[in-house]
Structure formats: structure tokens, C-alpha cells
Write a protein that binds this DNA or RNA. Sequence first.
DNA 1: ATCTTAGCGAACAAGGTGTTCAATAATAAA
DNA 2: TTTATTATTGAACACCTTGTTCGCTAAGAT
Lengths: 181, 181
Amino acid sequence: MDRRQQKTRDAIFKAFSKLIGQKRYANITVQEIIDEANIGRSTFYAHFETKDELLKALCTDIFSHVFSDELMSEKTHDFSGENYVLEAKLTHILHHLKDSEKNIAGILSSESGDLFMKYFKDYLTELFSKNFNEIKVNAPADFVLNHLVGSFAETVKWWVDNSMKYTPEQTARYYIEVSYN
Amino acid sequence: MDRRQQKTRDAIFKAFSKLIGQKRYANITVQEIIDEANIGRSTFYAHFETKDELLKALCTDIFSHVFSDELMSEKTHDFSGENYVLEAKLTHILHHLKDSEKNIAGILSSESGDLFMKYFKDYLTELFSKNFNEIKVNAPADFVLNHLVGSFAETVKWWVDNSMKYTPEQTARYYIEVSYN
DNA sequence: ATCTTAGCGAACAAGGTGTTCAATAATAAA
DNA sequence: TTTATTATTGAACACCTTGTTCGCTAAGAT
């Protein structure tokens, strides 16, 4: 990829990340992104067709780091019945979110999270499907899967909104505790 | 309230509900609402300052029916340890959402749900706080409360997105089963 | 050194926003 | 019924955002 393209793309991502931490996604204009990134109008549209495409690309970029191949590998079934492996993976995700230079916290909170959460949950669904220690519960599998994914996503959002006041280890622990005890 | 005002307000709500079932909230313009409601431009702005204000008003309207005073009354602690009361209340909410003439399903899904969910969770938090049968779990109370609220909200969204394929009774049962077993 | 591609920036039409105002019609109060 | 009040109207307004086009320039690849 041309160095110029990479530079422009980075500038757009950076500007967008900054803005998304300041105001609602819906209220951010392409004009503002252009101004903040200090690029030409036509240049923006040469890279992204719409604002939604930009968000999608940013999410894909972020998640490719957070949900690494190793993390998503299938051979992680846990036969201890204690979910140590899943807990470790969730901890890993939380650490990534915490340490990321990109403004993930900003994206997740500040009411921009609609689309972000959608993409986030897609990855989580894949992860949980593969780490499905059947819970001994009288409910359909699709219900349980959605419950696990949704409640973890909500947990992350809550964790971020509350200044990450618990450590990743604690948060993952509590989640496993509440979900699988 | 003047009959004219009520009529206009209803027309706006109706038009908005219809549109929100057709396209993303973010992409709905005031112009479209005006055209659909068949009212004057200045009339709209006499009623609502922004689109967000309109959504807020609609949500308040809906929730005032769904979360009735009876439902929110405090004296509903359940000492059986089986959460029969909470389950009945959740079932009641699901029935309301299902039968509502207003396009609640449309609002909840179709990616308009960001703000709706926010208001929804406010009410749920109040409800769950009052029906807090301590779960015997090693996690902070604020974590548990958020988990219960968030996972129920996610359950409802999933239920609606999947054509409400389970009955309200089943869905509430599964939720209690997974959360409190 | 030359070919190729990205970025620039100005201009454009189309359409949305939020406000104002005088005229009109519906409603409430006497 | 008459009168006073208030909501709605529709046009006009300046302003902003959008997405596209185009010739020019500059950076990068070969």
C-alpha cells in the first residue's frame, strides 16, 4: 500500500477516534473529520464512501488486534467444568481494551456504541460458540448463547462507563461467577 | 391540552413510529416526519426541538404504559427464593411489548435502539433494584445489578429480532433460569 | 527519468436545518 | 354568540452538510 494512502488512512482514523470521544457518532459530520484530519474533501471520499463505512473499518481494525487468531483458536475446551480457559480469554480481551491507544473507551461509551457493539458482539458470538461449556440449564442453546454474549458486552460497556474501576481479572472473574456458578 | 395539539402530537408519533420501522433512526429526517405526518414545518418545531427530543418523548410515552405503577410497586419481595414475582413482572413486560400498537419492535431493532435501550434500562434498573433477591455470588452488588439489567435488555432485543419465537412466559422463564439457577 | 497514483482545493447542485412572520383557522371562555 | 386566545400554516430565510467532478500538483514506484 502506498505510504500516502496509509498516512491518510491513519489521519482519518485518528481524527475520527478523537471526535468520537467528544460527541455522539450521529452528530459527527464528515466535514469535522476532514478538518480534524487536515485532508482534502475528495480525499476522504476516495477512502470511505460513508461515515458508517469508516466506523466499520475502524472496528475491523481494532478487533483484528483484540480477537487474535490465538484467542479464537478452537482447541480450548475446558473439561474441568470451571471455565478457566474462557476466563483467561475474557481477561485478555479486557486488558486489550484497557491498554489500546485507539479510543475504544470513547467509542464504546458516549452513545456512539450502537454499531460498535454490533460488531463486537459478532466476534463475541464466535468466541462463545467455541467455548460453550454447556450450562446445565433448562433453556434453548440459542437463548443461552445470546445471553452469554449480550451480558458480557453489557458488562464491558458498564466497566468502561465506570472508569474501569475493577481490574480486568476481577471483572472477568465476576462475570464467570455470575454466569456459570 | 388543546385538541389541536393532541392531534398534531399523535400524528407526529404515528409518522415517526412508522418511519422508525422502515429505516435507521439516524437516517430519518425531520422533513420525512413532517411529510408523513402531513403537518407544517414550523408546527413540528413548536412541539419538539430536535429529533432526539421526539424519541425521548415517545419512549416516555411507551414506558409509562409498560412500567405501570402497579408493576413498579415496591412491596414485591419474594422470600421463596424462587423469584416467582419477578418472573411474573418480566412476563408482563414482554406481553406489553408484544401487543403494543406502537411499533416497539421496530424501534428496538432496525438499529434505532441506542437511545431506546438507554431509557429502557433506566426503568429496568429501578425494577431490578426493588426485586433484588440477593444472588449468592462472589461479586459486587453494582456489578450484579448491571448484569441482570443488561442481560434482560439484551434478551428482549434478541427476542424481538428473532420474531418473538418464544412466548413471553417461556422467555421470562428462560431468563430467570439462566440468571438465578 | 518517467510513468503512475494520491492528494488538493475549488466549485457544484441538491437537500436538510432551524428560525421568523404575517395570515388563517380552531378552540376556549365570556 | 361574540370575543379573545392559541395552534397551525406556508413561504421565505441564511446556513450547513453532502457527495461528486475536474484540472493541477506532488509524492511514490519502476
